[in-house]
């Protein structure tokens, strides 16, 4: 049991949690602005695909990251236009977008990349892993913190930055006000739509990074439906973390630890299906423990 929890496991947790964390931060921003974003899964998947296409065709992981952000933001903007401007049900739109992205990325993978199921290519540039010597020299922490991609660093830096943004800036204040009581905000000449669009675009950036980390960070492949429910776990992390960046970080770390532990246990002989369902069971149990005390939103079909 002792060798289950070691630096290696924590290192893996820090890394594997990043897509969920980034997506959940994006979801938290939307939630704060009053938009229940079920499309996180699709935005992240679009990001993962965009990253591979950008990196492959433009010849650099940096381009990949930009393309990932563009793709995820595009999906987010569709969500915003349909549910905010055209008043479609945000849950229906979110679900449909998730399905759209699964189909579209698979379709495009075949048309653009000429691959079925999984795309990998020796020329596909992944995100660099950052291991400066000075960092490696630090005991324990050095091993924990080196070998991560810049996106991993960005994800953890995003937590304090977003906390500052939400709670210390005027824009953050207005964004929260809109999410809490849009009509009251409107009476104070704060435009709710503008704040909600801002949240969606920021969520696009964050989920785009999440997708890039997924397809260019952990591995260097694109796989059909490779987000595999991470967007939904992120959604629960938003609820569990009460849409506060720190809370979201803690919730994501919990789920990430379970995930990493699962992968580790697989090595000990636990079937992959059991480790696969573990994060979902833990997620459900946290919801039960919350007993509706998290964010309480009701949608209708």
């Amino acid at each position: 049991m002792a060798d289950l929890f070691d630096i290696q496991l924590l290192h893996m947790t820090l890394r594997t949690v990043v897509p969920v964390l980034l997506a959940a931060l994006g979801g938290a921003l939307c939630e704060r602005a009053g938009l229940f974003n079920v499309a996180l899964e699709g935005m992240m998947l679009a990001g993962a695909f965009g990253a591979v296409v950008g990196s492959f065709f433009l010849g650099g992981a940096g381009w990949g990251v930009l393309a990932a952000i563009a793709a995820a933001t595009a999906i987010g903007l569709i969500l915003a236009v349909l549910s905010l401007n055209l008043r479609a049900n945000e849950i229906v739109v979110g679900i449909s977008l998730n399905l759209l992205v699964v189909g579209l990325t698979t379709f495009l993978m075949r048309v653009v990349l000429g691959a079925t199921g999984t795309f990998h290519h020796p020329d596909l540039q992944g995100l660099p892993q950052w291991s400066p010597e000075w960092l490696q020299a630090v005991p324990v922490l050095g091993r924990l913190l080196s070998g991560h991609t810049p996106v991993v660093w960005a994800a953890y830096l995003a937590v304090p930055i977003l906390t500052y943004f939400l709670f210390q800036t005027t824009i953050g204040l207005r964004l929260r006000a809109v999410g809490e009581h849009a009509r009251a905000a409107q009476t104070l000449a704060v435009n709710p739509l503008r704040m909600q669009y801002l949240a969606v675009v920021l969520a696009g950036v964050l989920t785009g990074l999440a997708g890039a980390q997924l397809s260019l960070g952990q591995v260097r492949i694109f796989q059909e439906n490779m987000t595999a429910g991470r967007g939904f776990i992120a959604l629960v992390a938003v609820i569990f973390g009460r849409a506060h960046p720190t809370g979201v970080l803690l919730a994501s770390l919990l789920f990430g630890l379970i995930d990493a532990l699962g992968i580790r246990l697989q090595g000990v002989g636990l079937p992959s299906q059991v480790t696969g369902l573990l994060p979902f069971v833990v997620t459900l149990l946290t919801l039960v423990a919350l007993r509706g005390r998290g964010l309480n939103r009701q949608g209708t079909a």
Partner: peptide, 9 residues
């Protein structure tokens, strides 16, 4: 899948 999702949207 694309056509279907677009229809639903």
């Amino acid at each position: 899948s694309v056509v279907q999702a677009v229809i639903v949207l």
